[in-house]
Amino acid sequence: MGFVEGLAQALALAATVLPEEVVRALRAAHAREEGPARVQLEAILKNVEMAKEGRVPLCQDTGTPTFFIRFGLDFPHLKELFAAIPEAVRRATREVPLRPNTVHPFTGKNPGDNTGRCVPAITWEPGPGDAVEIHVLPKGGGSENCSALKMLSPGVGLRGVKEAVVEHVVAAGGLPCPPTIVGVGIGGGADLALKLGKLALLRPLGQRHPEPEVAALEEELEELINASGVGPMGLGGRTTVLAVHVEYAHRHPASLPVGIAVQCWAHRRATVRIGPDRSITVSQ
């Protein structure tokens, strides 16, 4: 399998099959809900089954293809990988098919293949080793519209961070298609806080941050947001978020940035690993 094929396969997998642990979380939510909330989760679970069976996209908004790449500094095929990414996006757009979602902000023109200026968005993170790990995160517009950056005064402390996240997610109500997954990035600068929020979305559901204080904050935020009663699709219920993931970076003494990345229930995600011998595995 070539790089283009492997990456296109990952895009197809992400668009059509929901990761197993997300389905498990949705099933658990279904079991504890009643009334309109339960009806929503039933419809979601049925939709997930049908999409998987028919290998068709889960949602008509197949999102913007976004890539997060951790590459070993000794990986010998970087140039080839660099060229393969937009090609894989074009191929998946044709073959799955994905909805063409890239629009020129001035002319309104859509190239029709999900590529364009700065798109697909790719984050390259170098590290030791000779292999590559690529995370694909096609993110829908409805939930992305509910993502936000809050530049807090450091004096408000962790309490202020909690308040900002809870108020923001609850105010979004049904708009991001809850139950959502929320990635929170604390610290760094404005751009880094949002990037960390998105990176937090890549962590599988049910996996806590390794540091106990951060893990405790994740749990508390989940509990607080779910106490709001917004519920699935904003129709009321116990499950507004399936998970909250937090990542952090050191901050400037004068700044406390909080990036909030909101992801809809259709948390589409896939991973490609490429070895130095060009071996490729696609997983979720």
């Binding site: 979601i44 049925k46 068709v56 699709m233």
Partner: peptide, 30 residues
Amino acid sequence: GKGGMGEQTLQALAEVGAVYAHFTGGAGVL
């Protein structure tokens, strides 16, 4: 639709005899 509508629609629904019904967002295949 999804997400609901406002006061003017609510009034017109009562006047005309109609309802707004929510379908699950994202469930495009269903």
